[in-house]
Design a protein around this nucleic acid. Structure first.
Lengths: 190, 190
DNA sequence: GCACGGCTAGACCGATCGGTCTAGTCTTCT
DNA sequence: AGAAGACTAGACCGATCGGTCTAGCCGTGC
């Protein structure tokens, strides 16, 4: 690395990470900048240096970061999948594991970060683009597994729709098995 | 009516109605009491007379009101339904119509009101009970249509999971047809 | 050595938050 | 008529909100 990056997380990354966690936990409006600043261990001046538009900017960065992470999980899930259902199943199990780690209290990492944000139209467009990247990543695996582009896109959407609803229900019931049983709900018994 | 209720909406009802609308639109944390008060045309004193616990109390009332309304839509949808799929389809069409009325900007009426609220554990329990009432109402129709209690409950949950995810997607795409195509997504082509 | 820009540091700002409290009005009962 | 309670009305409160601004640190290039 020829850039000046240090080996430990940069100030900017610590801000994004803290914001992502807190926005997911308490929502965008429910999170104060002071909380983010405290958690990241960063003074206010630094925030407005790295994110000139303040909180809304931070929300965009958090949405991007989240999308990237989710796509990574999707790619991992489908890497060795013999068919679509296996890929979806692995994805659901991975996310169920995450759900348990998060203590069942957080909002859905995808939709909580991408849909609850500033009223700013700019953020909405940003979030929509991030979501489209996620759908496209999943659809790509569908195509690899032999689906037509249209069918793959539809299947990816259905998967995300079901995932979002399942996470919400899981959160209310405080039980991650709702997530693990999503494939059965969507595609019937094996 | 022997009670002292006037024929136009009471102060309390106006507060609940305004709060429901605003919470759905901007979220619980994103809505200020002053907005609710202004929209309802009610002074602060009245709010704390009718809802001693303030905003959290209002959120509970909004959740109750929403659940009641949704159950009414569910009952209407299944009244003349020959089978489960028809009932779900009618429900989705009714909600799609509501979606269009709301200008595609609001959160899902069910989940937005029931899941985004005060951190208060009391509210969570309240919202969970309200959601269970909704699930039970739908499951009842499933049983009437010949399902076993277990199957009906499962089908009702699946429907709500799909509905929640579909509304979110519809909101992002600004298109209500995502809601109308939910039955096809869930149960395949007719 | 020293000027300069990237970045940190936090005091400070007006606005708004949810909530309290007192005063006053209106209805109803005796 | 008059007392009591339900309800309205809004001034007021401390806390916290997101955001601005100045001062200073620190590494780099001249």
């Amino acid at each position: 690395m020829l850039t000046g990056m240090t080996e430990e997380a940069s100030t900017r990354d610590r801000l994004v990470f803290a914001a992502t966690r807190l926005f997911r936990q308490r929502g965008y409006d429910g999170t104060g900048l002071s909380e983010v600043l405290f958690e990241a261990g960063v003074p206010k001046g630094s925030l407005y240096h790295h994110f000139p538009d303040g909180k809304a900017d931070l929300a965009c960065a958090a949405a991007d970061w989240t999308a990237t992470e989710i796509i990574r999980v999707i790619d991992d899930s489908f890497r060795a999948a013999p068919d679509w259902r296996h890929g979806v199943t692995t994805f659901c199990y991975k996310m169920a594991k995450l759900f348990d780690i998060l203590n069942s209290a957080d909002a859905c990492p995808i939709f909580g970060l991408l849909f609850e944000g500033p009223d700013h139209e700019q953020f909405r467009a940003h979030a929509e683009a991030a979501f489209d990247r996620i759908i496209a990543a999943a659809a790509r695996h569908g195509e690899t597994l032999g689906m037509t582009p249209g069918a793959a896109h539809e299947a990816a959407e259905t998967c995300m729709i079901g995932f979002q609803g399942s996470w919400t229900l899981a959160r209310m019931r405080r039980r991650s098995d709702v997530l693990r049983s999503l494939p059965q709900r969507l595609y019937g018994l094996a």
